[in-house]
C-alpha cells in the first residue's frame, strides 16, 4: 500500500508530462478508427458495385442462353444429303447402265473407284 501512496504522488507531475501519451494514444485510436470506418465503407461500396456487376453479367448470360436456345430450336435440322422423302430427277440417259432402257425401275448409283 505504501507503494500506491508513492504513486499517488504522481499527479503533481501530470500537467507537465503524463497527459501527452494519453492524448497521443487517443489520437492514434481515433486515426485507426477513422481509417477502419473508411475502409469498411470502401469495402461496402466495392461489394455493392461488384454485386451490381455480377447481377448484370448474370442477366446478360441468361439472355444469351435463351437466345442460343431459341437459335438452336429455330435452326433446321442438319441436312445430311438429299431428302429421302423427295423424288429427284437424275439424268441417266448417257450414263453407263445395265438393264433395258425401258425398265420401270431405274437405280442411279453415284459412286467412286477407291
Amino acid at each position: 500500500m505504501s507503494r500506491r501512496r508513492d504513486n499517488s504522488e504522481g499527479p503533481a507531475m501530470r500537467p507537465s508530462g503524463a497527459g501527452w501519451p494519453q492524448l497521443v494514444s487517443l489520437a492514434g485510436l481515433a486515426v485507426v478508427l477513422f481509417f477502419s470506418i473508411q475502409n469498411w465503407n470502401e469495402t461496402r461500396k466495392l461489394q455493392t458495385t461488384l454485386g451490381e456487376r455480377f447481377g448484370a453479367v448474370d442477366s446478360r448470360l441468361t439472355q444469351l442462353a435463351t437466345k442460343v436456345d431459341q437459335a438452336v430450336r429455330q435452326a433446321p435440322p442438319p441436312q445430311r444429303g438429299p431428302d429421302p422423302n423427295k423424288v429427284y430427277q437424275v439424268r441417266t440417259d448417257s450414263a453407263p447402265s445395265e438393264g433395258p432402257k425401258t425398265a420401270p425401275i431405274v437405280i442411279a448409283e453415284f459412286s467412286d473407284f477407291q
Binding site: 450414263a95 453407263p96 425398265a103 431405274v106 448409283e109 467412286d112
Partner: peptide, 13 residues
C-alpha cells in the same frame, strides 16, 4: 430394272 452409273470421285481419293 436398269442400273445407271454416275461418276462421283471423292476429293480425298
Amino acid at each position: 430394272m436398269r442400273i445407271a452409273w454416275k461418276h462421283f470421285p471423292l476429293d480425298f481419293h
